[in-house]
Design a protein around this nucleic acid. Structure first.
Length: 460
RNA sequence: GCGGGUGUCGUAUAGCGGUUAUUAUCCCAGUUUUCCAAACUGGUGAUUGGAGUUCGACUCUCCACACCCGCACCA
């Protein structure tokens, strides 16, 4: 019997670095907080996840349109979406004694100031001085400072307020500003969605837990446009789809928890949000969410840009601004969940065997090919032929003639390679000519098959 | 951002105010090996960075950086 043990985060970090999945960002300069670099196996795994997502939510559906919008956008976009206002750019004050930080607008409200969010930061400062407002501990406060979660940058050679823009803190706005373009190109019927996957940037106060909370990451999102009367049923449908997706990642449904986000904690645009959390070793944490964004974004962009965002029901004069359901998927977080879930240690004959039980379609290497012995040219030649043949078929095939055969199996186990093909002396002659052994990652069992049958046997 | 902890080959570790910086593993080259980390030989590879104290710092002090834990934050 085998016993399964739970991996610690440090085990995963160590494996990821050692085997070339994920390295610290800017490693040789001591690192840069909140950034990680994906190595050869990591990027393969990440692309496999992204491709599976694209296939499920875009290619396999008739109602979805792909998009890859620019990361840099007009600053007007972020004004219209509300990201430059309260929420994303919080006014903070610091207790000069305890060094604790508070939301300036919340403090003002507690001191009986009406609608403090409408005040500029200078006005907030003035009010704090005038009314001698102290911290909850009764200490002096610092000047109001804006903590902006968005990375600022300047577009063009001149750096001033007019050229200031931001690295996107969510991908959604790219879809909203292209809503009209998609309508004009395709005349889709509602409901339909616009999907994209790409880099997102948030200047987090404190990055934590390996690739879980970082400053640069990848989100896969889609905006699903619906008639306002139907949002609940569409929400429900996408809610179910979320689990089909986590099945594809190999995640155990019992480790996924739902959090119905209460109104006070919801984003400024949302009428309903469900967070999907995964039970990591370091806590149960959000890996994705579904939010009902109403017509908040389209209406704001319609107002700010003057572009008509209404949808006209075909064959009628009925018009309305669609409402939006937004499922969002944290690619890096889901990758971490998939690795944590796959990280398996079985005890075999008193010894631990560690392997990554990744779903085959996610495995960075699909097949490893080895000659049983590397100092026998006839075995090596034959193995190279098999390697070339499989490489053409599967692409992600690895040649491995390091050490002895047991060692190679362990190495491939560690990176989650589902199949190891070995060419031995029986391959070369006799009744077994042109047969090889195929070893299964999860069971360690071997079967002997014809080389010509390999492509059929190997299931990805 | 606050508080606490940690930082030594790729990984995991030992140790010390003066060492040729330990061990294992990995990796590379070779010998060997007929299916689950065998053995042998040789080799590459580290004190996070910067100041300071000192005759001399990986070791002590300070600063920076990074990671981990708690708090806060997570629109």
């Amino acid at each position: 019997m085998s016993e399964t043990k739970q991996p610690k985060l440090e085990d995963i970090v160590s494996l990821c670095k050692r085997r070339g999945f994920i390295y610290p960002g800017s490693d040789i300069y001591g690192g840069l907080a909140g950034t990680w670099d994906y190595g050869p196996l990591g990027v393969a795994l990440k692309r496999n996840i992204e491709q599976a997502w694209w296939k499920m939510f875009v290619e396999d559906r008739d109602d979805m349109y792909g998009l890859d919008s620019a990361i840099l956008m007009s600053p007007k976009v972020w004004q219209a979406s509300g990201h430059t206002g309260a929420g994303f750019a919080d006014p903070l004050v610091e207790d000069l004694k305890t060094k604790k930080r508070y939301r300036a607008d919340h403090l003002l409200e507690d001191n009986g100031i009406e609608d403090p969010e409408a005040l500029s930061h200078e006005q907030m400062n003035a009010v704090i001085r005038e009314k001698a407002i102290k911290s909850p501990e009764g200490n002096e406060l610092s000047e109001v400072r804006v903590f902006n979660l968005m990375f600022e940058t300047y577009v063009g050679p001149i750096q001033n307020e007019d050229s200031k823009s931001y690295l996107r803190p969510e991908n959604a706005q790219g879809m909203f500003v292209n809503f009209k373009n998609i309508i004009d190109s395709y005349y889709p019927n509602i409901p339909f969605g616009i999907a994209q996957s790409g880099k997102t940037f948030r200047n987090e106060i404190s990055p934590r837990e390996f690739i879980f909370r970082v400053r640069e990451f990848n989100l896969m999102e889609f905006e699903y446009f619906v008639h306002p009367d139907t949002w609940e049923e569409r929400f429900q449908h996408l809610h179910e789809k979320f689990y089909e997706w986590t099945d594809l990642l190999g995640l155990d449904r019992s480790k996924i928890h739902e959090l119905e986000v209460p109104e006070a904690d919801r984003a400024h645009y949302s009428k309903r949000t469900i967070d999907f959390e995964y039970a990591f070793s370091f806590g149960t944490k959000e890996i994705g969410a579904i939010a009902y964004r109403t017509d908040f974004d389209l209406k704001n962009h319609m107002q700010h840009s003057g572009t008509n965002m209404e949808y006209t029901v075909k064959g009628t004069n009925d018009k309305y601004v669609p409402h939006v359901i937004e499922p969002t998927f944290g690619l890096d977080r889901m990758l971490l969940a998939a690795v944590a879930e796959a990280y398996t240690i079985d005890e075999v004959k008193g010894e631990d065997r560690m392997y990554l039980k990744l779903p085959h379609h996610l495995a960075p290497v699909k097949v490893a090919v080895s000659p049983l012995l590397k100092n026998k040219p006839e075995l090596v030649d034959k193995a190279k032929q098999v390697y070339s043949m499989l490489k053409k078929e599967f692409g992600a095939v690895m040649w491995d003639d390091n050490g002895n055969i047991g060692k190679r199996y362990r190495r491939q186990d560690e990176i989650g390679t589902p199949y190891c093909v070995v060419i031995d002396f029986e391959t070369l002659e006799g009744d077994t000519k042109d047969t090889v052994t195929v070893r299964n990652r999860d069971t360690t069992e071997q079967t002997r098959v014809m080389i010509t049958d390999l492509v059929k046997i190997i299931v990805i």
